[in-house]
Nucleic acid binder design. Structure first.
Length: 415
RNA sequence: CGGAGCGUAGUGUCAACGGCUAGCACGAGUGGUUUGGGACCAUUUAGACCGGGUUCGAAUCCCGGCGCUCCGACCA
C-alpha cells in the first residue's frame, strides 16, 4: 500500500507514561494505540502483523487436524457456575444486564462453552478423537495490566481443545501439539529464544508445559538446561530438586521469560461437570478426556518486538512483518524517480509481494527514520542518486550494508 | 488489592519563587525555499485530569475522586 494512505503517523517520542519497550516502539511506529490500561487498538500496521501471526497459527492448527470455530465472547453465568469458576476465577469479568437480572461473563477462556457444545454432538467412541480451535478475543480482569501489550485485559488468544478416549491418546496429541507450537514460534521468528518449559500440571497431570520466550520484559523466571534446550518454571524448580527433568543436569541458568504459549492436560476437569461422556465398544460410559492449548497473539507480537529491535526501532522477523518490502522514493525534481518508483511498486504488487511504498512528500531523512522505526525487513530506495548508480538501493533492516541493484535484476531476484 | 511515583496544547518538557499575557520544542495549518538520515524561513493553531478547600491571588499548597506507570501480591 501507499504510505500516504496510512492515517497513522510515527512519533519521535513515546508517551511519557509508557515504560515498557514493546509498547513504546509499537505506539511510536503506529502499530497500536492505547485506549486504556491493558486495552489497545490494533492500527492498520499492527493488524497486518497480527494477521500474519494468526495465519501462521491457523496453518499449523489445520496441520494438526483441528477444525476452526468461533465461540461467543458473551457467556452465560450458569456455565461458569457449573464448573465453580463463576466465584473462584478472580480474573473473570462478570456483569448484569441493565434490563433484567440476567448475569453474564466475558469469556476468559472457553472450556465452559466448548464442553457443553461438544456434548451435543459427541457420545460415541466412534466420534473421538478430534480437536477444534478458535482465534478470539479474551477478557481478563487483571488486577494490574502491565508490560505494554504483554498483559492486557482484552487480548486475542488461539485456544485449541482436544477430546480423547483415553490418557494415551491425549498424551499422543499433546506431544504433537508441542511440536506444532515449536513450529509456530519458529515461523514467528522467536523460536531461538523460546523454550519448552516444565510447569505445574494442576491436579490431573504431573506437569503442564509452557513455551517461555527469554526476555527481561517477562514476568516469569525459568531455569534453562542448555544441553536439552528445555526449561523449568520457577514454580516447580524446588520439586525437581533444581535438576533438568530430562537429563538430570544441575547446570541450569536462570532467566526472565514471558509465557507465549501453554499446553495443558485437562483430563476430565471440564467434561465431568458438563457430563461430556462417550460410550465405548462395550456400551459403557466414560468421561471424555480433554487437552487445552493456548497462544496469546498480542503477547507474541509484543515479545517479537522485545526480542528484535535496535535503538532506531523495530526489526520485524520475516514471518510476521507487516510488509516484506519498504519501498522509499526520495523525492526530487527528476520525474523519472517517481515513475521508476511507481513502476517498481506496481511490479512488486503484481508479483504478490507485500510492499509499503513511501510516496509521501517528506524529506529523505524522515523517510529513513520512519523506515527504521517501522522495521520492515527489506528497504528499497529509489532516488536520483540510486538511478545514477544504475538502479535501486537495497538494504536489509538488520544489516548495515546496502547494495545498488539494477531494477530488472531486483525484480527478478525477489521472491 | 497493598505500596510508590506521576497527571501542563495532539506529543514531549528535572519551563515557570503562591503573583505580569502559562514558556520552549516537536506536531498540525498557511505561504515560500528545499529533498540521502527526523531540512529551513515566515506565520497561525492549540493547554492546567475532575470536584472541593486554603488564599487578596493556585498549574504551584491541602483534601477527595478519576486516570496512567512502576514494585509487590495475583495470574493453568
Amino acid at each position: 500500500m501507499k504510505q500516504s494512505q496510512l492515517f497513522t503517523r510515527t512519533r519521535k517520542e513515546a508517551p511519557r507514561d509508557e515504560a515498557s519497550l514493546n509498547a513504546q516502539l509499537l505506539i511510536r511506529a503506529g502499530f497500536v494505540d492505547k485506549v486504556m490500561a491493558g486495552v489497545y487498538t490494533l492500527l492498520p500496521l499492527g493488524l497486518r502483523v497480527f494477521k500474519k501471526i494468526e495465519n501462521i497459527i491457523r496453518e499449523e492448527m489445520v496441520e494438526l487436524g483441528a477444525s476452526e470455530l468461533l465461540m461467543p465472547t458473551l457467556n452465560p453465568k450458569e456455565n461458569w457456575e457449573k464448573t465453580g469458576r463463576w466465584d473462584t476465577l478472580d480474573n473473570l469479568f462478570r456483569f448484569k444486564s441493565h434490563y433484567s437480572q440476567i448475569e453474564y461473563a466475558l469469556g476468559a477462556t472457553h472450556e465452559e462453552i466448548i464442553s457443553p457444545t461438544v456434548k451435543k454432538f459427541v457420545s460415541s467412541y466412534k466420534e473421538l478423537p478430534f480437536a477444534t480451535f478458535q482465534i478470539q478475543n479474551k477478557f481478563r480482569d487483571e488486577k494490574r495490566a502491565k508490560s505494554g501489550v504483554l498483559r492486557g485485559r482484552e487480548f486475542f488468544m488461539k485456544d485449541l481443545y482436544s477430546f480423547h478416549m483415553n490418557a494415551a491418546d491425549l498424551e499422543k496429541y499433546y506431544e504433537e501439539a508441542a511440536r506444532s507450537y515449536r513450529r509456530i514460534f519458529e515461523r514467528a521468528g522467536i523460536g531461538e529464544n523460546t523454550y519448552y518449559t516444565y510447569a505445574s500440571g494442576g491436579s490431573f497431570a504431573k506437569y503442564s508445559h509452557e513455551f517461555q520466550a527469554v526476555t527481561e520484559a517477562g514476568e516469569d523466571t525459568i531455569y534453562i538446561c542448555d544441553k536439552c534446550r528445555v526449561a523449568v518454571n520457577d514454580e516447580i524448580i524446588a520439586d525437581l530438586e533444581h535438576k533438568c527433568p530430562e537429563c538430570g543436569s544441575e547446570e541450569l541458568r536462570s532467566e526472565k521469560a514471558v509465557e507465549v504459549g501453554n499446553i495443558f492436560k485437562l483430563a476430565n476437569k471440564f467434561s465431568a461437570p458438563f457430563e461430556l461422556k462417550y460410550r465405548d465398544k462395550e456400551g459403557s460410559e466414560h468421561d471424555v478426556l480433554m487437552g487445552c492449548y493456548g497462544i496469546g497473539l498480542n503477547r507474541l507480537m509484543g515479545t517479537a518486538v522485545e526480542l528484535s529491535h535496535d535503538e532506531k526501532g523495530i526489526i520485524w522477523p520475516e514471518g510476521i512483518a507487516p510488509f516484506k518490502v519498504h519501498l522509499i522514493e526520495v523525492k526530487s525534481q527528476n520525474s523519472q524517480v517517481t515513475s521508476s518508483a511507481e513502476k517498481v511498486y506496481t511490479a512488486l504488487k503484481s508479483k504478490g509481494i507485500e510492499v509499503l511504498y513511501d510516496d509521501r512528500e517528506v524529506s529523505a531523512g524522515e523517510k529513513f527514520a520512519d523506515s527504521d522505526l517501522i522495521g520492515i525487513p527489506l528497504r528499497v530506495v529509489i532516488s536520483e542518486k540510486s538511478l545514477e548508480k544504475g538502479g535501486v538501493e537495497v538494504k536489509k533492516r538488520n544489516e548495515k550494508e546496502s547494495a545498488i541493484v539494477a531494477v530488472a535484476e531486483f525484480l527478478a531476484t525477489i521472491a
